[in-house]
Amino acid sequence: MRICRITRCRCILLFFLFTGCFFPAAAKTNVVDIVTTEYRIEAPATLPTGWTTFMFTNKGAQAHFVVMYRLAEGKTIDDQLKHVAPVFEPLMQGLRSGELTKADIGPFFEEHVPDWGLQMTWAGGAGLLAAGRSTQATFLLDEPGTYLVECYVKAPDGSWHTLMGMLQQITVKAAQNNYVPPEADYTVTVSNQGVSGPQALPPGTHTFRIEMQDTPKGFMPYDLNLAKLTSSTDLDKVFFWMDWTNVGGLRAPAPVTFLGGLEHTYAGKYGFVTVDLEPGRYLWVSEINAATVNLPFEVKQ
């Protein structure tokens, strides 16, 4: 009788060990709440490396995004605010007045931005999001260091959100974890030729794997944003608005309702966007080369 009781106890112990009831499994996702307002980004001061999910809520009255990038070694948010961010205002003033053209942007940066200023390492983030909405973006933080999270949309008067307070420093620390990305329902690819993906979907919550295949000209890799269209949406106006170098580009109010997306990510890498879609017309569109890098699609019952 005693042997039976001992055997039974061992069986129960083995059951708990294998099912993890005594020792809970480590978290498989690194979920981070990010909130934007006018003009602030609420985010944690530190994060571990690994797959990271931004649960992004926009409590502001304008569209915002939260892009994340790693600074050059030894630099901090103070260096960025002193030596890099202020350069963009006189650049836009020159473009607005006609004293500068788009061809002058590169030489202007070379003259006014220190060498380290455009050597950031883009990491991803959550794309453009309309006021009062929430979205989810997952990307890989594969290197520790000093990062900034930023929204550089422009206010209605043309002022950069960055200089109005929407720049925050995050320290990413090396960590051993078993974080895993979500499982995707669909894949969307971004290349110099455009965007490829499903053009008809059922309504509901979907997770998209966003794969970046090419590198555009300039210092920024591709991003991809999701917009809800209406019968009166002028796509040419949307494409113009997506380009921050245009006078009026990325300037509030946005011409469409944005639902999130994946921020700037290098070729060969990927991330995930999870969003709830109701019936209607939608558009995937990049901030870079928007007139080419876009894909309209429809959600049908």
Rank of each mutant, 00 (worst) to 15 (best):
D33E: 12
C151M: 13
S231W: 01
G158M: 13
T53C: 04
R70K: 15
V66I: 14
F219W: 08
L226W: 10
L148N: 08
L47T: 03
T76F: 10
G271R: 04
G194V: 09
F88N: 12
P253W: 06
V190E: 10
Q193A: 14
V153T: 13
A43W: 00
D142T: 05
P198C: 12
V195R: 04
D276Q: 15
A43P: 03
L100M: 12
A72M: 09
T101D: 00
L148K: 09
M164W: 02
G268I: 02
W244Q: 02
D79L: 12
C4Q: 11
H64N: 06
P296Y: 00
I34V: 13
L91N: 05
G280T: 08
M92L: 10
L262T: 11
P198V: 06
F139C: 09
N192V: 15
P202W: 03
S97M: 09
R96S: 08
T135Y: 02
G249Y: 04
Q62R: 13
W284D: 02
W284V: 03
I12D: 02
L167P: 02
T245G: 00
G94F: 11
F15K: 07
K28P: 01
V273K: 06
L95S: 04
K28C: 02
W244H: 06
S134N: 13
T257A: 13
V31D: 08
F297W: 14
R96D: 08
D157M: 09
Q93M: 11
G60V: 05
I34P: 11
T29I: 07
Q193G: 14
V35M: 06
L235Q: 12
L141I: 14
R10L: 15
I210H: 09
A252M: 07
E287Q: 10
P48L: 07
E99Q: 15
V66G: 11
D104F: 01
I288D: 10
L167K: 09
K102M: 14
T205Y: 11
W160N: 05
P44E: 00
N246T: 03
G125H: 09
V190R: 10
N294R: 10
T265Y: 08
D78T: 15
Q193C: 08
N30P: 01
V113S: 01
P156D: 14
T37G: 01
I34D: 04
L141F: 01
D185Q: 07
T135D: 02
P107C: 05
R40W: 11
T205W: 06
G145F: 00
A174R: 14
T230C: 07
D33Q: 11
N177A: 06
F219Q: 01
A103K: 12
V32R: 05
I3F: 06
V180D: 11
T52N: 04
